[in-house]
Simulated scan of single mutants.
Amino acid sequence: MNSNDFYQLKAELSVMDFTKSKPNYADLARKYGVDYRTVKKYHEGYKGKPRNRAKPSRLDPYKELIIEKLSIPRISRKGVYEFLIDQYGDSEIGSYSNFKAYCKKHKLKPSKGDASGGGDTRYETNPADMAQCDWKENMILTSRSGETFCSQYIPSGVEIL
């Protein structure tokens, strides 16, 4: 039944209600090419399916916490999701794809990090210009040539074994 037929059926039913005559559902069903139960349903006040449903998300109670955590510099959506899973469990929060969809729907994005917030700024160099390593505390390193390096200050006169 297209929308034009629907309005014509509603108009006919309104006229019958106004004149207090009982509608013949079978006759109207044949006229509009639908089942008689459909005509009866519309006569009794059925308005059609709603366009969308107003179902709340399971993440709505955590919206303020999500906003707060996403405002931390250099935090990722995945990091906030893992935090929520650790705090409230998988059954309360749901899947990561659901979390991403919720963030997208509510326009929740991680804040852009700035250099003053700590961490390293990424920059590119030519090959062999720089090297990076992690330096451990209380560790003694010896080069191939026998030179000894250590990661803390050793007073003079103390022998390194």
Rank of each mutant, 00 (worst) to 15 (best):
Phe6Leu: 13
Ala11Gln: 11
Ser57Lys: 07
Asp129Asn: 12
Met1His: 03
Ser57Ile: 02
Asp27Met: 12
Asp120Met: 14
Asp90Gly: 15
Ile67Thr: 14
Arg77His: 08
Val15Phe: 03
Pro50Asn: 08
Glu44Asp: 09
Asp60Ile: 05
Gln87Ile: 02
Arg74Leu: 10
Cys133Asp: 11
Tyr123His: 12
Leu161Pro: 08
Gln8Ser: 15
Phe149Asp: 02
Trp135Ile: 13
Thr121Val: 11
Thr19Ala: 13
Ser57Asn: 06
Ile75Asp: 04
Arg30Ala: 10
Asn2Arg: 07
Tyr46Ala: 11
Phe18Tyr: 12
Gln152Cys: 14
Asp90Met: 12
Arg144Ser: 14
Tyr7Trp: 09
Val158Cys: 07
Leu70Glu: 04
Trp135Asn: 12
Ile93Phe: 02
Ala101Ile: 05
Lys10His: 07
Ser145Gly: 11
Ser71Leu: 08
Asp134Pro: 03
Ser111Pro: 04
Ile93Asp: 02
Val80Met: 01
Gly33Leu: 10
Leu108Val: 04
Met139Leu: 13
Pro110Met: 03
Ser145Trp: 01
Asp86Gln: 14
Gln132Leu: 15
Lys40Ser: 11
Asp114Asn: 15
Asp60Tyr: 00
Ile154Ala: 14
Lys10Asn: 11
Thr142Met: 11
Pro23Val: 00
Phe6Met: 13
Ile93Ala: 07
Tyr123Pro: 06
Leu59Arg: 03
Lys104Pro: 02
Lys136Leu: 06
Val39Asn: 05
Tyr42Cys: 10
Lys22Ala: 13
Ala101Pro: 01
Gln8Tyr: 08
Ile72Glu: 11
Asp17His: 15
Tyr7Val: 09
Asp5Ile: 04
Asp129Pro: 04
Tyr32His: 05
Lys104Cys: 10
Lys109Gly: 09
Asp120Trp: 11
Arg37Gly: 08
Pro23Ser: 10
Val34Ile: 02
Gly48Met: 01
Pro23Asp: 03
Glu44Ile: 05
Asn138Thr: 04
Cys103Thr: 03
Ser91Tyr: 05
Ala11Arg: 12
Trp135Gln: 14
Ala131Tyr: 05
Asp27Pro: 01
Gly117Ala: 15
Tyr42Pro: 01
Lys31Met: 03
